[in-house]
């Protein structure tokens, strides 16, 4: 008699990934955090538009500004990493291409985040 097990049950011999609504919840949580953080960053950039280099540096070196901008980056990048993952999973059906793109998504997010946080810390610590 053929196995009664569904292909899904057999696919990797694994049970639940135990993540449940983790993705959904983090997407909402970062969305909520993004509202004030994005408004802060936007206001800062508008106020710094066309300002000389020294003014931009001294403003970004302010501990409060640097700290909130780092929180802004972490929240926004987490949010967009989750969002892009869903877009990839929705439209890319080839298993290899999907895994490759999901990996690139993570690399891209970390590259943007590392570069931005490094620049902010360099300015903040007077480098």
């Amino acid at each position: 008699m053929a196995s009664m097990r569904t292909p899904l049950r057999r696919v990797r011999g694994l049970g639940s990934a135990k993540e449940g609504t983790d993705h959904f919840w983090k997407q909402r949580l970062t969305a909520l955090a993004n509202v004030p953080l994005v408004l802060f960053a936007l206001g800062l950039i508008v106020s710094l538009a066309g300002q000389p280099h020294e003014v931009v540096r001294s403003t970004l070196a302010n501990p409060f500004v640097a700290l909130v901008l780092i929180l802004f980056l972490v929240s926004v990048l987490t949010h967009m990493k989750l969002g892009m993952q869903v877009v990839i999973e929705d439209y890319v059906h080839g298993e290899g291409a999907k895994i490759l793109l999901i990996a690139l998504n993570i690399f891209f997010t970390f590259a943007v985040g590392a570069a931005s946080v490094f620049a902010l810390l360099k300015i903040a610590f007077g480098g």
Partner: peptide, 19 residues
């Protein structure tokens, strides 16, 4: 959302240039 994703590169470039 996808547009904003790639646009974060502009923010990173601006911060790196400022540093």
């Amino acid at each position: 959302g996808v547009g904003l994703y790639f646009g974060t590169v502009l923010v990173a470039i601006w911060l790196l240039a400022a540093s």
